[in-house]
Write a protein that binds this DNA or RNA. Sequence first.
DNA 1: GCCTTGACCGACCGACCGGTCGGTCGATAG
DNA 2: CTATCGACCGACCGGTCGGTCGGTCAAGGC
Lengths: 220, 220
Amino acid sequence: MVPTRDPVPPRAPDSRDKILETAEGLFAIGGYVGVGMRELATTVGLSKSALFHHFPNKQELYSAVLDRSLVRIEAAVNAVGTEGTPEEQLDAWIDAVVCTLSEDVPAGRLMMRALVDEEPFPAIVLQADAGLDRELEDFELRLAGILERFGALLEAGVASGAFRPVSIPDTLLSVIGAITFHFSSGELGEALLGESVFSRSAVERRRREVAQFIRRGLMA
Amino acid sequence: MVPTRDPVPPRAPDSRDKILETAEGLFAIGGYVGVGMRELATTVGLSKSALFHHFPNKQELYSAVLDRSLVRIEAAVNAVGTEGTPEEQLDAWIDAVVCTLSEDVPAGRLMMRALVDEEPFPAIVLQADAGLDRELEDFELRLAGILERFGALLEAGVASGAFRPVSIPDTLLSVIGAITFHFSSGELGEALLGESVFSRSAVERRRREVAQFIRRGLMA
DNA sequence: GCCTTGACCGACCGACCGGTCGGTCGATAG
DNA sequence: CTATCGACCGACCGGTCGGTCGGTCAAGGC
């Protein structure tokens, strides 16, 4: 092996990234069926054929968009680490996700849509499950990993007596709902808050409010 | 006025109701753009033309479906009344909504979709707002009414010292997210719980878990 | 010089979309 | 008996959907 730093051309063309970035915004607003390949192509500034040159079909493009958004969240929660008490880690997790969703504007709505759309996730329950007919997408596996780690954090907190003896799955769903819905609520959120949910002041307040809400909801 | 009880034929044909019922299920799964009038028609057992005989267009049919679902929730929370301490009323509200969503299976997902879809709700902030270009749909007004009453309940609790001094809009969004997402989460919820979120045992557990979670999250 | 390769385009395809239109049919009213 | 009316249907419309195909063009290897 020669020590060349990059076997592939030093810089992949950014058309693919631009497509994904644009698609994230459009899919977040319109959902999978609500965004056409033509619309996406003209928004990006390419022809429709060019999209099919970079991605085999619409489904795969969509999956790539989903996974790309989830990677950012995964990176944020991975940066938290595993040190500190369950309470401290819980706070850090919540803050990491809230900050990520507040900076990647389409991500929250995109995630919420993906979770509500029927397709996804016979994953999670897997771990040792074998008889799975459908192969899992990157997105599902990534989400399963994140949720598994968060679930373990909750369990540790319950075991140590720091948290109430809650149902872990129910709490998972409550927390996902409370955090993600806020950044998916669009006009409703804006109408309630009197400002965009992504405005600086709204985000600062949200970080405090939702962290307190969840922490208190879990405290023994 | 003669005392005839029914000026219209004593029983309106139930085709319209059947359309709405079927459409609720389909829209919950596929979303507005994901359900075609043909598909809906054949599922109901009518021709596509018959749908346009009962509703002027797809949008109005969808709005009617949304409003119909929200009416049930409204009825449930109206039945709670205004007696008792804020804590008691809070518990009663949560239980009313959770029970309604657990019985009307498509409703949660339908509501979540409607809330995430960009269209709705420059309402709520209204109340005295005049310069509103778009006329509001029944659905939006009904939701605004429900949220206003729930917001008032929270405010009363904060004022009386029963609840922490939380941000009312943030809490509204947290509670909506925590309750509604659970019943919208489809396969994810089922994978986490190991059973359908609508199964008897899951619903019973959910009633306890989410009520405790929210109550503790708000307690002073 | 040529030849490959990847990025990209315009034209086209069958399927399906929401919506319209003319007409049928049974019940009800006069 | 007939006129009316609401419920319903099949055929059809223009338009859009995801996806394919043949081809152009510039860059790089040999």
